[in-house]
Lab assay of single mutants.
Amino acid sequence: EFSMMFKHFDKDKSGRLNHQEFKSCLRSLGYDLPMVEEGEPDPEFEAILDTVDPNRDGHVSLQEYMAFMISRE
């Protein structure tokens, strides 16, 4: 189920989600993330990124995504 969600939000089929795609994916899974303006701080989402994209390369791989989802179950 999680990998299907990942593929759905991987719009460019790159095998990874940019942070915006990842945020959309989390919202569709029921995460209550506040709407913030582009460039505004988003501490809740930043905290999630610290876990799922610790190297802050700007992308979430399928492996990082799956590890995050399994840790939340």
Rank of each mutant, 00 (worst) to 15 (best):
L29V: 10
F68Q: 03
D53C: 02
R16D: 02
L26N: 00
D53I: 01
I48T: 02
M69P: 02
M66T: 12
H59E: 13
P34D: 10
E40Q: 14
D53H: 02
M66S: 08
E73W: 00
G30Q: 06
F45K: 00
F2M: 09
G39M: 06
K13A: 09
P34K: 13
P41H: 14
E40L: 10
D57K: 15
M69D: 04
E46P: 01
E44F: 08
E44N: 11
D57A: 14
Y65L: 06
H8R: 14
G15A: 03
E37R: 13
I48W: 02
P43S: 10
N55A: 13
F45L: 07
H19R: 03
L33G: 05
L26P: 01
F45S: 02
E21D: 07
Q63W: 04
H19S: 02
D53E: 01
C25G: 00
M35C: 14
L17H: 03
E73C: 09
H19T: 04
P43D: 08
N55G: 12
P41R: 13
A47N: 11
F68R: 02
G30I: 02
V36S: 11
E37F: 06
G58C: 01
S61L: 08
P54V: 06
V36D: 11
Q63E: 15
I48N: 01
K23W: 03
D50H: 05
E44A: 13
L62G: 03
H19K: 03
E38M: 11
C25R: 04
F22W: 02
P34G: 09
E44P: 09
G39I: 04
P54C: 06
M66F: 04
E64R: 13
E38V: 13
M66C: 08
Q63L: 07
D50V: 02
M69S: 05
F22Y: 05
D32N: 15
E38I: 11
I48G: 00
L29K: 04
S61C: 10
N55Y: 06
G58W: 00
D12W: 03
I48H: 03
H59K: 10
E44Y: 09
L62P: 03
L62T: 04
Q63K: 14
E40H: 13
V36T: 14
